[in-house]
Every structure is written in structure tokens, then in C-alpha cells.
Amino acid sequence: WEITFERNGKRITVRTTDHRLLELFEKLWRNGADERELERLAEEINR
């Protein structure tokens, strides 16, 4: 799966075969987690 999240013109794409990681990322994104931390998390998930 691949999903791109966008907020205030900032886009972060997450790619993984584990839908649970996408759900976790989406919850953090929707709850306003720090964008720098989300970028780092996305990099780890995308590996």
C-alpha cells in the first residue's frame, strides 16, 4: 500500500505491506503529531 498524507502543503508518502503501520501513521497524522517526527517515521516505514 502507498498513501500520501498532506497538511498545509506538506506531503509525506508512506509505503508498506503492513496496513497496521499505515493506520498508526494516519492516527498520528490526524492527531497533529510533529511533522519532523512523522517524516522520520515515514522514512523508517518505507525501508
Score class of each variant (00 low, 15 high):
residue 37 E to Y: 13
residue 30 R to H: 08
residue 44 E to Y: 15
residue 2 E to T: 06
residue 14 V to S: 00
residue 20 R to T: 12
residue 23 E to A: 14
residue 23 E to H: 14
residue 34 D to P: 10
residue 16 T to H: 10
residue 45 I to N: 01
residue 41 L to W: 08
residue 43 E to S: 09
residue 38 L to Q: 01
residue 8 N to E: 07
residue 15 R to Q: 06
residue 5 F to H: 02
residue 33 A to C: 11
residue 20 R to C: 04
residue 9 G to Y: 01
residue 10 K to H: 13
residue 30 R to Q: 08
residue 26 E to F: 15
residue 25 F to A: 01
residue 37 E to H: 05
residue 22 L to I: 12
residue 36 R to G: 13
residue 15 R to C: 04
residue 23 E to W: 11
residue 36 R to E: 14
residue 33 A to E: 07
residue 47 R to P: 03
residue 13 T to Y: 07
residue 28 L to Y: 12
residue 31 N to P: 01
residue 44 E to I: 13
residue 31 N to I: 06
residue 44 E to N: 06
residue 18 D to A: 06
residue 28 L to N: 03
residue 13 T to V: 12
residue 17 T to C: 11
residue 41 L to G: 00
residue 39 E to P: 01
residue 42 A to R: 02
residue 31 N to V: 05
residue 24 L to N: 05
residue 43 E to P: 01
residue 9 G to P: 00
residue 43 E to F: 06
residue 34 D to C: 05
residue 44 E to R: 12
residue 40 R to A: 13
residue 37 E to C: 13
residue 19 H to Y: 15
residue 42 A to V: 08
residue 4 T to L: 05
residue 33 A to P: 02
residue 25 F to K: 00
residue 14 V to T: 00
residue 29 W to T: 01
residue 7 R to Y: 13
residue 39 E to I: 12
residue 47 R to V: 09
residue 43 E to K: 08
residue 26 E to W: 15
residue 4 T to P: 01
residue 37 E to R: 06
residue 33 A to R: 03
residue 18 D to R: 04
residue 34 D to G: 09
residue 17 T to M: 13
residue 7 R to H: 07
residue 23 E to L: 14
residue 46 N to T: 07
residue 6 E to D: 04
residue 20 R to V: 10
residue 3 I to C: 09
residue 20 R to F: 12
residue 19 H to R: 15
residue 5 F to M: 04
residue 15 R to M: 07
residue 7 R to F: 14
residue 18 D to K: 04
residue 15 R to L: 05
residue 41 L to H: 02
residue 20 R to I: 10
residue 28 L to Q: 05
residue 22 L to M: 11
residue 16 T to A: 10
residue 22 L to N: 01
residue 20 R to S: 12
residue 24 L to I: 11
residue 22 L to D: 00
residue 8 N to P: 03
residue 27 K to S: 12
residue 27 K to P: 00
residue 38 L to N: 00
residue 25 F to G: 00
residue 42 A to M: 10
residue 4 T to G: 02
residue 16 T to M: 04
residue 12 I to Q: 01
residue 41 L to E: 02
residue 26 E to G: 03
residue 14 V to P: 00
residue 32 G to P: 02
residue 18 D to I: 05
residue 13 T to R: 06
residue 41 L to C: 06
residue 33 A to G: 09
residue 20 R to E: 10
residue 41 L to I: 09
residue 26 E to R: 12
residue 16 T to D: 01
residue 35 E to I: 15
residue 4 T to S: 09
residue 36 R to H: 15
residue 34 D to L: 15
residue 15 R to S: 07
residue 4 T to N: 06
residue 18 D to W: 04
residue 9 G to T: 02
residue 32 G to E: 06
residue 35 E to R: 03
residue 25 F to M: 04
residue 5 F to A: 02
residue 30 R to P: 01
residue 46 N to G: 05
residue 17 T to S: 14
residue 40 R to F: 08
residue 16 T to S: 11
residue 37 E to N: 04
residue 9 G to S: 03
residue 42 A to G: 02
residue 11 R to E: 07
residue 2 E to Y: 09
residue 25 F to D: 00
residue 8 N to R: 04
residue 38 L to I: 06
residue 21 L to R: 04
residue 4 T to Y: 04
residue 42 A to T: 03
residue 30 R to C: 07
residue 35 E to F: 15
residue 16 T to R: 02
residue 41 L to D: 00
residue 35 E to H: 13
residue 24 L to H: 09
residue 27 K to W: 15
residue 43 E to Q: 12
residue 28 L to K: 06
residue 26 E to M: 15
residue 13 T to W: 03
residue 35 E to A: 11
residue 3 I to S: 06
residue 42 A to I: 10
residue 39 E to Q: 11
residue 40 R to G: 07
residue 44 E to Q: 11
residue 30 R to I: 07
residue 1 W to N: 06
residue 34 D to W: 15
residue 28 L to E: 06
residue 21 L to V: 09
residue 22 L to F: 12
residue 9 G to A: 03
residue 45 I to L: 06
residue 47 R to N: 14
residue 13 T to I: 10
residue 40 R to L: 14
residue 14 V to H: 00
residue 13 T to K: 07
residue 11 R to S: 12
residue 42 A to F: 07
residue 19 H to N: 08
residue 26 E to Y: 15
residue 41 L to R: 02
residue 41 L to Y: 05
residue 23 E to R: 14
residue 35 E to S: 10
residue 44 E to G: 04
residue 15 R to W: 07
residue 39 E to M: 14
residue 43 E to A: 11
residue 3 I to W: 13
residue 10 K to W: 14
residue 34 D to N: 10
residue 46 N to L: 08
residue 45 I to C: 04
residue 43 E to I: 09
residue 3 I to V: 14
residue 46 N to Y: 06
residue 36 R to V: 14
residue 29 W to A: 03
residue 46 N to E: 07
residue 2 E to W: 08
residue 20 R to L: 11
residue 32 G to A: 04
residue 7 R to P: 01
residue 3 I to M: 15
residue 19 H to M: 15
residue 37 E to D: 12
residue 18 D to V: 05
residue 9 G to F: 02
residue 35 E to C: 08
residue 6 E to R: 03
residue 47 R to D: 07
residue 19 H to P: 13
residue 17 T to V: 07
residue 47 R to G: 13
residue 32 G to Y: 07
residue 24 L to M: 13
residue 34 D to M: 15
residue 12 I to T: 02
residue 36 R to D: 15
residue 16 T to I: 09
residue 24 L to G: 02
residue 30 R to S: 09
residue 21 L to S: 05
residue 12 I to C: 03
residue 30 R to V: 08
residue 47 R to W: 08
residue 27 K to E: 10
residue 36 R to P: 09
residue 2 E to A: 03
residue 19 H to K: 14
residue 39 E to N: 06
residue 38 L to C: 02
residue 7 R to I: 14
residue 34 D to T: 12
residue 39 E to L: 13
residue 12 I to S: 00
residue 9 G to E: 03
residue 5 F to K: 02
residue 21 L to A: 11
residue 36 R to S: 14
residue 18 D to H: 07
residue 39 E to Y: 10
residue 46 N to I: 09
residue 14 V to Q: 00
residue 19 H to E: 10
residue 7 R to V: 15
residue 13 T to M: 06
residue 24 L to W: 13
residue 5 F to W: 06
residue 36 R to M: 14
residue 41 L to K: 03
residue 18 D to N: 13
residue 29 W to S: 02
residue 45 I to S: 02
residue 18 D to C: 09
residue 1 W to I: 10
residue 1 W to D: 05
residue 18 D to Y: 04
residue 12 I to F: 14
residue 42 A to P: 00
residue 2 E to P: 02
residue 10 K to F: 15
residue 28 L to F: 12
residue 6 E to A: 03
residue 47 R to Q: 13
residue 18 D to E: 07
residue 34 D to V: 15
residue 41 L to Q: 03
residue 6 E to F: 11
residue 35 E to T: 12
residue 35 E to N: 08
residue 37 E to F: 13
residue 25 F to Y: 02
residue 26 E to D: 07
residue 44 E to F: 15
residue 4 T to I: 11
residue 4 T to C: 05
residue 1 W to P: 05
residue 18 D to M: 07
residue 10 K to Q: 10
residue 17 T to Y: 13
residue 7 R to N: 05
residue 40 R to Q: 13
residue 43 E to L: 08
residue 28 L to S: 06
residue 40 R to M: 13
residue 32 G to K: 06
residue 40 R to E: 11
residue 16 T to W: 06
residue 43 E to M: 10
residue 3 I to N: 04
residue 12 I to H: 03
residue 28 L to H: 07
residue 21 L to P: 00
residue 46 N to M: 09
residue 1 W to C: 10
residue 25 F to I: 05
residue 32 G to W: 06
residue 35 E to Q: 10
residue 34 D to E: 08
